[in-house]
């Protein structure tokens, strides 16, 4: 028994690390480093810029309300949602349609979910760069209030870690579903990330939503995670909105951990189900004819 679990562990590890290596090779495979810089720096700044312009128009240039840092941090950390979720689920499409290696990965003695998680690491790293750049830019040039001495670092790292784990579990769920769906849904990662953008309080508090839509926001762990990220960085500002203000930090962490565990367990079952269906229907080496 002990032998087998040791074997499984090393199987998961090597799946994860080699997938990380592969993911990094793919992610950094830019023939032109200049394009890479544009992609990873200018893109997040551009999207933050659009948001700032919109805000300026609406708030008539008043940057001193709490809503501005609320939006700015929400948007910055939301970069992780797209990066991690679609980074992981994209591996399925990439391997199946582009490299035609999904079946060879599948028959290898690897742990598929660990492999997919590894494939997401590179996108997580480039995403982190984008997040840091966005926040630094905001603090330096846009008067986003950020005092590094006042940051609640333990809360920051606990929340960041839990949040990334939660996003990874959501990525696994998407990857599993991707096994079953056809190529033309290849943007599923981006699509889900885009849809959740409106419901997770990223750029406006849930209070703005009609009452009957708010439960959607409360069911999504991203909502609590973004709130925690804001509170850990700029404490008081983020509590200016009623939606989540009656929760203490600890309560929010509790909810986030709880929901992450639920998503983690769900991802295991969803993977098993999708894996079973994909083999039943012969979808693992299917290539769409485009």
């Amino acid at each position: 028994m002990q032998n087998i679990s040791a074997l499984n562990r090393s199987e998961s590890w090597r799946s994860f690390w080699m997938a990380t290596w592969l993911g990094w090779q793919i992610e950094s495979n830019w023939t032109d480093p200049f394009l890479f810089a544009v992609y990873s720096i200018v893109k997040p700044l551009a999207s933050a810029g659009i948001l700032v312009v919109m805000y300026t128009v609406i708030a008539k240039g008043n940057f001193n309300t709490p809503i501005f840092p609320y939006i700015y941090f929400g948007n910055a950390f939301y970069i992780y949602v797209g990066a991690v979720m679609s980074g992981i689920s994209w591996a399925v499409i990439d391997d199946r349609e582009h490299y035609k290696t999904l079946k060879y990965m599948y028959i290898a003695p690897i742990h598929i979910p660990a492999y997919w998680l590894g494939r997401g690491v590179a996108r997580f790293l480039t995403g982190s760069i984008a997040v840091v750049i966005t926040i630094a830019f905001g603090a330096l040039f846009l008067q986003v209030p950020l005092d590094l001495a006042k940051v609640d670092w333990p809360l920051f790292f606990v929340s960041l870690f839990t949040g990334i784990a939660m996003l990874a579990m959501m990525g696994l769920i998407l990857a599993s579903i991707t096994l079953l769906i056809a190529h033309h849904f290849f943007l599923i990662g981006e699509a889900v990330a885009g849809a959740l953008y409106l419901f997770s309080g990223a750029i406006f508090p849930l209070d703005v939503l009609p009452a009957w839509l708010r439960p959607v926001g409360f069911a999504i762990p991203i909502t609590y995670w973004l709130e925690l990220m804001r509170r850990s960085l700029v404490g008081n500002v983020a509590q200016a909105f009623p939606t989540l203000s009656h929760f203490s930090n600890l309560q929010l962490v509790g909810i986030l951990v709880g929901l992450s565990v639920i998503f983690g367990i769900a991802s295991t079952f969803i993977f098993r189900f999708c894996d079973y269906r994909a083999r039943e229907r012969g979808l693992i080496d299917r290539v769409s004819n485009y």
Partner: peptide
């Protein structure tokens, strides 16, 4: 398993890297 008549593999990796990576997945 290998199927002929299809060109699978990670085009951005060298021949050695492709093969080495698979060997690592097999431990």
């Amino acid at each position: 398993m290998v199927s002929g008549g299809e060109s699978s593999g990670y085009g951005l990796l060298t021949v050695r890297e492709n093969l080495w990576m698979f060997s690592q997945f097999y431990g």
